[in-house]
Amino acid sequence: MEFAINYVILPLVKIGIILAVLPLLVAAITLAERKVIAFMQVRLGPMRVGPWGLLQPIADPIKLLLKEDIIPARADKWVFVAAPIITLIPAFIVFAVIPFGPTINVLGTPVTLYVTDLNIGVLYVLSISSIGVLGIILAGWASNSKYPLLGALRSAAQMVSYEVALGFSIMGVLMLSETLSLVGIVEAQRSSGLWYVFLQPVAFVLFFICGVAETNRAPFDLPEAESELVAGFHTEYSGFRFSLFFLAEYANMITVSAMAVTLFLGGWLRPFPNVEALAFLDLIPGILWFAIKVVVFLYFYMWFRASWPRYRYDQLMKVGWQFLLPLAIANVIVTAILALIFRG
């Protein structure tokens, strides 16, 4: 019975909750994004559906689902159908290892607020999310159309380039925490009494820049640049299939934010977890601290989009390979030397 609860029922319930909450969250983010960008541009944003346009996230999916599902005549049908699924599945299963909060007690049973704690957690997130780009490339190719192909090529080059710097920026954190488990990294931040953003400020900035590039968001949204490529890799997609890509992109935004929070901002820990005077902050449960931090990152995503123009393609490659990557490697070397000196 104990075995069934711990290894079958509880994980299934948690997976069900994640699969149900994630799309709702994405819907909420789309509304928030339109409102935030509108306010930054002194507009009102969506106002028609419901009070203050609050029902817009319900109207949007209904519209998307009712649209005609178009498959271009010369498209590779088989790949065209598979591509959005290949992109969406990795975006969702990454959430299996993200620790949303500490272990809590529900009716006397300890319940962990994550589906599983892998001993290769960080590696799992990196490897699974690297599969997503395959779906984007295949989508661009299968559409048998110029703009999607160009978008897909850009996307592939961009994601492969920035993945390298992203990986190197995480290595600094791993050297401090001495574990690949995401729960272990949060616990290490508790025992060291400091969020790793204070010990690894360079890595933190690098991670977030590369994360924005990995999710194809402004100012790195060349693969779907409206003004030159119509919509990039998903130009030929409509209705439900388009919404799968959309869902994957926003889920990836949440993943990058959650990873940044877990690796650098102490996950579910309150600010300054070692300062006794701030113990009253523990009244707010861990999962809420986690959510607050993630929302801050999502807000940054929107802020970036409203503020910065898109990179040119050559600039993008230059920033990635000639600036971010050397800086990330230098950070790894400096961290290794300092860790060796202070830890002996």
Binding site: S127, S130, I131, I137
Partner: peptide
């Protein structure tokens, strides 16, 4: 586990993506 993770990140995320990249050209 480590080998499995590296297998996916290197072969699927890296090499295969580059294969497809070249194939499309």
């Amino acid at each position: 586990e480590f080998l499995a993770g590296v297998q996916v990140i290197v072969y699927v995320g890296g090499i295969l993506v580059l294969f497809v990249f070249v194939i499309m050209l």
